[in-house]
Write a protein that binds this DNA or RNA. Structure first.
Lengths: 252, 252
DNA sequence: ATCGCACCAAGTGTCGACACATTGAACGTG
DNA sequence: CACGTTCAATGTGTCGACACTTGGTGCGAT
């Protein structure tokens, strides 16, 4: 993946930009898909609807409070209400919509207090990831994290906030998978799905990228040194600063 | 609740025993119910079926691998297949059943490796609970934990393993709620639901009760002293020893 | 103008029906 | 007797229909 971007590096700025964009789109798709992986609906129709709606909510096209009733969606998707209902229940389980009994379902709102709760959990679980990763990952595997780190560095220099965000997600997913705990990986991606909803808040602050980048660098170094205490501390604070950025942005 | 048992303490052994049993049954119901709380199905029919099956699986009446197809269950419950299907999807979400596409659903198996993964997460999250609890709980709230601790002590002296187990669950739930993080509480009870499936393994070892009891005592003391480092360490090891007991039992 | 009540459109939970997939047994062939 | 094929039985995913609820609209009474 790194090779693809690198190979095109000398074909001119425009091509590089579009190649980059395509690459990012692919990455974005992969990351959202991996987050949606944990949800195995038996029906592929319901799953397609679920993914469509989930992406819509996460991207903000379906704003909080927006009504998503099964009848209208069924017409829209040219299916019966049964698969739509199933999809809505999946979305409810991911806390993306609320389905009150006998009432119309709507896209859930996210309060700052809830964001804080989620970040508390995330910080804790990523600390666990760091701990397990150091115990179990090989040097080669840790080196792959270094690759991601390099991308983050490039994005920071280019000032490309969006690219930074998605590469950051990639970094995180890789970390989680290297922890060797699949259950942990699943729970984290479920949390991640919710996080994507307010990501734009998290990276809007100036100076945040540089800060985050420095932390990533120190984290990878701690991994290479197999320094558990250090890695855990950095990992925890890395997540937590994400929350603080949202809090300080005052946008919630 | 403690009062009810206490008030009857001098009405003779038989009555005490039956009162205790009723009390335990109530507690068991409460705890399972609270674990099932997080799941809000919009349909109350589906929810009833879900709970019925969930309890059946957790209690072992529906063994791993047992087929749970929607057609048969629909006949059994005198409903159509629609609510049953919904219930099965909820169960899949809790990892209690597996619903392969176009194939009959069946009760999921639990491998030791998976149990380990879950315990790793639990240990981590309960450490977080301890940390938050010390930050946020009042002295009175911490005192309620002392009440639970007293029950555990009584159960140990009586050698009542079953009572010990459920009171332990109560202790844990109280801790989680005192953390003030509802999201955390929800995720933990979802994990707890799975755990109940192999609880009989965890408490079968002799000497385990005394060990666990001592840990609980130290934990409550650390809470009272607001000793975060100590509480976190105890909390983590408390959960972890539960896993070790299962591992050593060699029954998986 | 305001309140209360009947009424109606639209949505929800549930049902029975249908086409297709899967499974296991019967059966013939080597 | 082993083995692949055929065929019915059973289950799944999806559909359209039905009764009941809910939320809003308009109308009449105050």
């Amino acid at each position: 993946m790194a090779a693809e971007v690198g190979d095109l590096a000398d074909t001119g700025p425009a091509l590089v930009a579009s190649a980059r964009a395509a690459d990012l789109g692919q990455l974005r798709e992969d990351m959202l898909f991996s987050a949606l992986r944990g949800v195995d609906g038996s029906s592929s129709l319901a799953l397609a609807i679920f993914r469509e709606l989930a992406v819509g909510i996460v991207e903000g096209r379906l704003p909080p409070g927006h009504e998503v009733n099964s009848a209208e969606l069924a017409r829209e998707f040219n299916t019966s209400r049964t698969p739509v209902r199933e999809a809505l229940l999946m979305l409810e389980r991911e806390d993306l919509v609320i389905v009150p009994p006998r009432r119309r379902p709507y896209v859930s709102e996210v309060a700052l207090a809830q964001v804080r709760e989620i970040y508390e959990i995330r910080a804790c679980l990523y600390a666990l990831v760091s701990e397990l990763l150091i115990q179990r990952a090989s040097d080669e595997q840790i080196a792959t994290l270094h690759d991601w780190q390099a991308k983050l560095e490039a994005d920071t220099q280019a000032g490309d906030v969006d690219a930074y965000f998605w590469h950051n997600v990639g970094f995180r997913n890789t970390e989680a998978s290297l922890s060797g705990n699949r259950e942990l990986q699943r729970r984290l991606s479920s949390l991640g799905l919710q996080m994507h909803r307010f990501r734009h808040l998290s990276l809007s602050l100036p100076g945040r990228l540089l800060n985050s980048l420095a932390d990533h660098g120190r984290l990878v170094r701690a991994y290479a040194d197999r320094d558990v205490a250090m890695a855990v501390a950095i990992s925890r604070s890395l997540v937590w600063r994400g929350y603080q950025a949202i809090e300080r942005s005052g946008l919630m």
